[in-house]
């Protein structure tokens, strides 16, 4: 309970609530698009570098490889569960359900970054290789969603003007993956001595930048909710709240079976529970242009992201301690 209260009253969550409230109240406050994108790249560089430096200190044990593989399997499987729930409980058609499922199989790097801060403030350790797990969990869900959308349907003709490989370029070379994997590799190669030289830029201001970024995320979530809520019925909103819990439970069960430490367990639960709103929406516009962004983006950004930030992370942290404590 104390942990949940501490999370809710942290500057990060409060700045997010400020942005969300401002957007819902139709405030004119905006953060310029280019600046927000710069902040996102900064956060991904910082978390990638930190993960890489931590990886340079430890060996690649069999357990590390197993967790990496588990992350990929989770990302492939979660959309199947999400798709089944959506088809059973909501009126979404196959295309919208598959596109939404892709978002819930992929990850939100901002939720992951916020979770690493909460884990640290709770006095727990997390491993650097979890950043690699995050990067590996970005793309597989998109492939599963494409299979789900096309299963039992006639093969759709290619869209006019499309080029072979354009979807895979978008999926595998999007900014999140390039920056995250690149920074991870640079941190791994340069190690602690390299990090010391850039720590005044990447370590000390990190939490402040995260607050600024979460203010923008709050604005985006609020604007998304305001403009897209009409597209969501009760069953869709409920899905946005229970699906993270189902995914986190699955992530927790896998972490328990692998015997990884509490901090890593919490992070695997967070990765499973989070829903993408950067890489997957862009891929979906190319792969499934008929799917409605007002459904999948409003759900992942307007419902699941705030839920995970305010309620989910402390809950996953509590259960991770219970499982591995």
């Amino acid at each position: 309970m104390d942990q949940m209260l501490a999370t809710l009253l942290s500057p990060m969550v409060l700045f997010f609530v400020l942005g969300l409230s401002a957007a819902l109240l139709r405030s004119q406050m905006t953060i310029p698009e280019a600046f927000a994108k710069g902040l996102a790249i900064y956060l991904m560089m910082a978390i990638g570098l930190k993960g890489g430096v931590e990886m340079s200190r430890s060996d690649f044990s069999l357990q590390v490889w197993t967790v990496l593989a588990a992350g990929i399997v989770l990302s492939f499987c979660l959309p199947v569960i999400a798709f089944a729930f959506l088809r059973w409980t909501s009126k979404m058609d196959r295309i919208d359900a598959a596109a939404t499922a892709a978002h819930y199989g992929s990850i939100s790097i901002v939720t992951f970054v916020a979770a690493t801060q909460f884990i640290r403030s709770a006095g727990l350790e997390s491993s650097g290789y979890m950043v690699a797990v995050a990067a590996l969990m970005e793309a597989p869900a998109i492939i599963t969603a494409l299979i789900l959308a096309q299963r039992g349907q006639k093969k759709a003709p290619s869209v006019a003007g499309s080029e072979s490989g354009e979807l895979y370029r978008e999926v595998l070379l999007n900014a999140s993956i390039v920056v995250l994997v690149g920074a991870l590799a640079i941190g791994w190669v340069t190690g602690e001595s390299g990090m010391e030289r850039i720590s005044p830029f990447f370590v000390d201001p990190f939490q402040g930048v995260l607050c600024l970024f979460l203010l923008d995320m709050g604005l985006s979530a609020g604007r998304g909710l305001r403009q897209g809520w009409r597209q969501l019925d009760f069953s869709a909103v409920a899905f946005g709240l229970y699906m993270p819990l189902v995914s986190a439970a699955l992530g927790g069960a896998i972490a328990w079976s692998l015997g990884i430490q509490a901090g890593d367990t919490a992070l695997l639960m967070v990765l499973a529970a989070s829903a993408s709103y950067i890489a997957v929406p862009a891929a979906m516009r190319l792969a499934m242009p008929k799917a409605k962004p007002s459904i999948y983006l409003t759900l992942s950004l307007g419902v699941t992201f705030p839920f995970n930030l305010a309620v989910g992370i402390p809950l996953y942290l509590y259960f991770a301690n219970l499982i591995q404590g």
Partner: peptide, 14 residues
């Protein structure tokens, strides 16, 4: 029946 605008979300997909 609905408004749209740039900068709505970070993916810029809309």
């Amino acid at each position: 029946g609905s408004r749209w605008q740039r900068d709505r979300d970070l993916s810029a997909s809309q």
